[in-house]
């Protein structure tokens, strides 16, 4: 009997590892991150102070000007640690990627669940899983080596061909070879299968009666899937899109490899940008242990994990609400 109790205790310890892990992740990220607030003011992480020394050759005087700006330059005499360009880059890439993958992902999910039929669905689902399983470094490398350069060449060619009509408009728009658009495209390759299989799952759980009823009323297959099945599975689809957005925010290696890594505020998707994840990945290795830079990167990580935590929570709440409505 004691043996049974001991085994149960051991098993319960193994089960609590996940709980302990999630607790420790939050604890250690915040513990290391909050130290950054002791080393610099809260305001410095929003608007960075920039001081410039200029030399006037006429009066032969040095003048020091103090300005502020949304600048991320952690390695300089005066570290500039504004989160704004990083958060902006993350949001820009995640929004672009989520838009593309919402459209394509819902289409794929709809096809898998409503149009493909049992046999084809059984063949396509593993392919989607295969696409998710490709390492992100491979996707990043693929976008970098295979997609980015031809797209650059195409933009140059199109710019030259359309020059009589548009002037240098194309080259002024398509500025960087590695840009937010390329990054977002790479990220959507990873997100599309995630959204597609979540959408497929939620549409599969829509009761068959609803489809039968719709068909009985004379609706076509498209009308049934678009007007009946999709709205019935709406909360699952919404949750899939939110989770996809969260995944896009957290994606690292693809963005590091092909989004350009320039911390700038630009609304042009063809400009080079950087994200919170990319800054952590590229700078943590060289940031000294215990330095302001390192603690700031932990603070960036804390921000990221908090945002994704609430996105996951939101998706979970939407699914739960939907489930209770179906049951009652």
């Amino acid at each position: 009997m004691y043996r049974e109790k001991a085994i149960e205790a051991l098993l319960s310890v193994c089960a609590t590892v996940s709980l302990v892990a999630i607790f420790l992740i939050f604890l250690f990220l915040f513990k290391e991150g909050i130290i950054a607030f002791k080393l610099a003011g809260v305001g410095d992480f929003i608007v960075a102070k920039i001081s410039e020394v200029t030399f006037d050759p006429v009066t032969e005087e040095f003048t020091k000007t103090e300005t502020t700006g949304y600048v991320w330059q952690p390695v300089s005499d005066q570290p500039k640690l504004s989160f704004v360009p990083l958060v902006w880059g993350s949001l820009l890439i995640a929004a672009l990627a989520a838009t593309v993958s919402t459209i394509v992902g819902i289409a794929c999910g709809l096809y898998l669940s409503e149009m493909a039929g049992r046999k084809l669905r059984g063949r396509l689902k593993p392919l989607m899983e295969l696409l998710v399983s490709i390492p992100t470094v491979v996707i990043g490398f693929f976008m970098l080596a295979i997609i980015a350069y031809p797209l650059r060449a195409f933009a140059d060619w199109a710019g030259a061909a359309l020059a009589p009509i548009l002037g240098d408009w194309v080259s002024s728009i398509y500025t960087d070879t590695f840009n937010a658009f390329i990054g977002a495209l790479g990220v959507s390759i990873v997100i599309i299968p995630v959204i597609a299989s979540l959408v497929d799952d939620s549409l599969q759980s829509v009761p068959q009666d609803l489809r039968d009823g719709s068909f009985a009323l004379g609706a076509t297959r498209w009308q049934t899937s678009w007007r009946v099945v999709l709205p019935a599975g709406f909360s699952g689809v919404a949750a899939a899109v939110i989770l996809g957005f969260g995944r896009a925010l957290g994606e690292t290696m693809i963005v590091v490899m092909c989004a350009g890594n320039a911390a700038q505020l630009s609304a042009n998707p063809f400009d080079s940008v950087t994200t919170m994840t990319a800054r952590i990945a590229t700078e943590m290795g060289t940031a000294g242990v215990g330095s302001l830079h390192q603690h700031t990167l932990f603070l960036v990580g804390s921000t990221l994990v908090t945002v994704t935590f609430f996105l996951n929570l939101l998706a979970e709440v939407i699914v739960q609400k939907y489930r209770s409505r179906i049951v009652s």
């Binding site: 996940s18 892990a21 999630i22 420790l24 992740i25 250690f28 990220l29 513990k31 290391e32 989770l243 969260g246 925010l249 957290g250 994606e251 690292t252 994840t277 952590i280 990945a281 943590m284 990167l297 932990f298 990580g301 990221l304 994990v305 994704t308 935590f309 996105l311 996951n312 979970e316």
Partner: peptide
């Protein structure tokens, strides 16, 4: 399910910090 949703780079930070 929360652990499954944590971004992979955050695991990297945790591995270093913890």
């Amino acid at each position: 399910s929360n652990l499954a949703g944590v971004p992979s780079i955050v695991f990297g930070l945790f591995g270093l910090g913890f």
